[in-house]
Amino acid sequence: MITAFAIFSDGLVYAAYLFLVAVGLTLIFGVMKILNVTHGSFYAFGAYGAATAVGIWFDRGLSDAGGFLFMVGVAMLIGLVIGLILERGILRLVYGRDEVVIVLVTYAAFLILEDVIVLVWGPRSYPAYQPMVSAGSIDIGELTLSNYDIGLVVLAAALAVAVWWSLKYTRYGRLLTVVIFDREVAAAYGINVKVIYTVTFIIGAMLGALGGAVMAPKISVTLGIGVEVIVLAFAVVAIGGMGSIEGALIGALIVGLGRAAAVHLMPEIELFVIYAVMALVLAFRPYGLFTQPAPRKI
């Protein structure tokens, strides 16, 4: 019983983490059809920015709740700036090129940004644990759960609802949906696809940075955290269906619960459970769980 509960709660926490990491990636893919490797850099910059912000805030002895908001704010600001620079400075030049070429452009940008991190922050790690520690914990039976983890689950759920709501009920969201559905028709109806692209990429970058920021207090922010996140996010997004927000949510839940079950019940398979799930899902649903296959054009 306690194990079942533990699998459920651990799975939710991990799923929240995966969703926060994957949502920006799937949004950019859905709108722009770009598999964005730079997403790992957004995550890393968010985490580094957050760690720096936490350092500044708590050194002054300011209040805990404000520290969390300050940390998230700084990280998202960094995401905004980098997203803008990348989209306007580089991506704009390669729109219309082969999809793979664009993936490679983001990969090149990722390599460059990895070294920019070293140049800015140096090759040392940054702890930012204050928000996690000050959040405290609660006991449920034998288990002790961290309030910060519970907060993450709530945040992820809120973010999922917010994204879904804005896609459905805001003007910009509806425009996005049109572009996702058919970019040429959208352009033909006079939607300014260029602006939509820029805004979407920046939002995606800010979401990536947000993922890094909220994870920063749990981890030690160090070089190479971006690389780890990229494949994980790719896997989640591929399972759920590239470009689908519901897909990212369901993908995150499947992977999160699957991994938690593996750790508790069969630790030896934990290492490749994510990829096994991905291969299985793709074998039966080639386009992921939540996307329709594109019509074949004659």
Binding site: I7, G11, K218, I219, S220, T222, A260, V263
Partner: peptide, 29 residues
């Protein structure tokens, strides 16, 4: 980097010590 499930598993154990050769990022996390 994220060890929620591992920590829950250990919380359900009556072990008196936990051996680890973790280093840096993973250790601190």
């Amino acid at each position: 980097g994220e060890f929620g499930a591992e920590i829950s598993t250990l919380l359900t154990s009556k072990s008196q010590a936990l051996h680890s050769s973790f280093w840096d990022g993973d250790q601190e996390s």
